[in-house]
Structure formats: C-alpha cells, structure tokens
Design a protein around this nucleic acid. Structure first.
Lengths: 225, 225
DNA sequence: GAGAATATGTTGTATTTACAACACAAGGAG
DNA sequence: CTCCTTGTGTTGTAAATACAACATATTCTC
C-alpha cells in the first residue's frame, strides 16, 4: 500500500487529505487492496455492490452488455481513478455493468457505507471525505445534465449551438477554447464527424461562429440574425 | 412549519426519519422557511448557491437561458420535491440555471454544508441524512447515464432497442411494462413521436418486438435475426 | 526534410428523420 | 349517448444525417 499512497492521494475522493492522515483514514475505512489479472472481473453484472474502487495500478474497463449480448465499453479508468461509486451509493441491487481489469491491476476497495457513516472514533477527516464523495457525485450529475441538454437536440446545428452556448457561458466570454478535437466533439454530441464539420463550415459562412483549431468565437447576435 | 411536516417527510432527503426526529433535525440543520411570490426567483443564474430547496407548497420551475437569451424549462418541482442539490453539492461558483416560483410558494432552504457535516451534537439521524443525500445524487447519476446511453444512438431504431434492452434487463424478463406513453417515450429518446411510432411498427413487422399499449415483449433472438 | 500518422475539411448519395396533416380508437365528462 | 380530449398509428414530403471516399493540413518522428 505504501508504494501507492501517492496514487490514492491523487484520487478526488481524498482531496484535501494529507499523506499522514490518509494512512490513518484508510485503516479506519478498512480499505482492502486486491490484485486482479488481465481480463478478470472486479465487479460483474448482476452483483450487488457496496464498494467503490480506486485504481492503484493497471487499468479497468467498465463494460455493458445489452439484452442481446452486444458488448460496449462505457469507460476506461486509469490509476488514481474512481469507479463503482454511482452504483454503490445508489444502492442498486443488481449491477447493470461490469468492471474488468484490462491488464494486471491493483485495486483499492472501500465500502461506501464506511465512507458515508461517520466512524465512532470520529476521525477528523471523515467530514472531508463525505464532502468529497458528495461533490464527485454532484459534479458528475451536472456534467451529465449538460451533456443531455446538448445530445437531446434534433439537429447537428442545434447540438453545436447548445454546446457552444454552454462553453461561452462557462467562459463568460463569446471567445473560448474547447477541450475536444473534432472527433471527440462529434462523439460527445453523438453525431458524425464529417457531417459536423460540414455544419460548422455552414455556420461559419453564415457568420454565426468563427473558429480555428479548438478556439471558437460566437457572434453576439442571435443565431437567426 | 408544523403544517408542512408531512410534506417535508415525503421528501426523499428525509427517508427513514420519523416526524419527531425530523423536527429536531430541521432545527439542527438551521433550515429556514421562506415565501416566494409567483415569478420571483429562489435562485438566479450567476448566484453562488450553498443551499438545497424543498418545495413545501406551490411550485418551482428550473429555467435555463442560453448564450443568446433563449429560455427553456428544464424541470418543474412540486411539493415534497428537492431542487438545487446538484449545483450546491458540486460547489459550482456561478449557477447556470435559475429557480423561480410558478405560483405563490413556500420553500424550505437548507445549507448543504450542514447536511454533509456531522453536527457537534451528533444527532442520531444525521448519518441517515447524509446517506439519503448521497443516494439521491447517485440514483440521479445512474438515471442520467442510462438516458445518455439511449439518446447517444444515431437512429431511432437504435435508441428504441437500447431503451427496450435496458427495460428488459431491469425487469429481468423479455416482457415488461414501460412507464411512458408514446409521446413521453419520444421525448425521452429525443425523437419525433410519429417517426418513432412508424419505426416501432416496422420493428413489429420484422418480429423484433411485440407491444400493446405500454406493454412490450422482446424477441429472444438477436435483432438481426 | 522526408515520410508517416493524425487531424480536419469537402463532396455525393442513400438512408433516415422531422414535420405536418390526418385517421382512428379509447376513455371521461356532461 | 354525444362531445371532447387524449393517445396512437399512417402517410407524404422536405430536410438532415450517416457513411464513404477523398483532399488538405498539421504534427511528429527519424
């Protein structure tokens, strides 16, 4: 564990907690470290999960299998990353996804009930831990809501405008940089990259937006003007 | 407050907490009750919010205004409903939405920091309260992720199959009822109702699915077969 | 600087969708 | 029962998209 302390400290769940306190906290949480071979499951669909996982080394894929057995990868988690927190904390009785090691992996497992219950010994950093967990869930919530707002639009143009509007409001400026390249933006908006590129070109021709690379600038007037 | 105790108790934030304990808890949380006239703002876009709201009476709309000033209603909250929890708990510095009373409303406001910090007097039900908050956020997380999984598909058919697959897995049966009528399902999947209806008809013709009203039954074989 | 890999823009076509308009059934209110 | 509302399916057409294939850039490596 010693060797992974820096990785654990990098996990947002432990924000604001120093190395020394962290060691005490992990013991208070009865966190356990386990090793998984490539391809083996940390959680399997159908399981009841009460733990969250922190990747110490290696990597983990979150997989989903639909009714007909079609598999898809929902996420890839790297060292320092957290997984399983939504399903554990939501107290779902049967996991709808699986988590599998993509290579030999070391995982720290922590029971979410230990996290959200203040310990009898009242360790100082437990309140910070709870606040971190709540913040992580809430931030993901905000990000997901924002994405749905974009993806739920009917046309590529509406999706782009919705996304660019959100970025402009976030930057509090009509000029801003986006954290995606074209392919990533297309994936985020769930549209075809080339069709999106064409739509961006038309929007530029109409004077709605200017852009170069990942820097965008929105015209101040309404899109219709 | 006395008169609204039953409403507060119905809020999922206070699940598992009895009326007597609730009164003590609310005082421990320094919850405050405020009255809002129709149209007035409980939270305005740009505010820094640290409180969650519980609607005691009346109604609240969550509103969003984009970069060009186009308004849209994201949600309507009724008595017993909770709002503002995601943004408060995510510690966003400037609210990207507003909350306004749709009619004369009574709102209970609670600082989220009081919720996630265990109180010095260590009131018994605080751990339950924290767990409720975490569960609410996590469940919304799961629901949003599930919706994104459907909405991010390219075609109406893929969206329908994704949604129906999720419902079948949830029901652990290939026959199940859905909680939507056609218009609501179309809104959920972000497609046109009539186009969706036509697609459902084609899928039925192809033997992929059978349905009547809100009861659906998926063929066991793969969609392509 | 050459060459490879990656990122981005462009175009044509077949497919799919949105939209509007309408038909029809079911259920409730009077 | 009749009217009215609501829910659902159908069709035609214009519009938008996905997809494929290709043309330029840009960046990275050697």
């Amino acid at each position: 564990m010693q060797e992974y302390l820096a990785i654990v400290a990098a996990c947002p769940l432990f924000d604001g907690i120093g190395h020394d306190e962290l060691r005490a906290l992990l013991s208070c949480l009865t966190a356990t470290q386990r090793q998984y071979e490539k391809g083996s499951y940390i959680f399997a669909a159908g399981d009841a999960v009460t733990t969250v996982g922190v990747v110490l080394a290696g990597g983990v894929n979150i997989l989903k299998e639909d009714f007909w057995g079609n598999r898809s990868i929902l996420a890839h988690i790297e060292p320092g990353g957290l997984f399983g927190e939504a399903f554990s904390c939501a107290q779902v009785d049967k996991l709808p996804v699986s988590a599998a090691a993509t290579e030999k992996a070391f995982i720290l497992l922590i029971d979410y009930r230990k996290i959200v219950s203040t310990c009898p010994s009242a360790c100082t950093y437990h309140t910070g831990l709870i606040r971190n967990m709540v913040r992580i869930l809430a931030q993901k919530n905000v990000a997901l809501t924002e994405k749905i707002d974009c993806v739920s639009r009917r046309t590529t143009r509406e999706k782009l405008l919705s996304y660019l509007s959100a970025e402009a409001l976030r930057a509090r400026s009509n000029a801003f940089a986006i954290p995606f390249n074209r392919q990533e933006l297309a994936d985020y908006l769930a549209v075809d990259r080339s069709a999106m590129s064409a739509e961006l070109g038309r929007m530029r021709d109409e004077g709605i937006v200017r852009f170069e690379k990942n820097r965008f600038e929105l015209a101040e007037g309404p899109p219709g003007a």
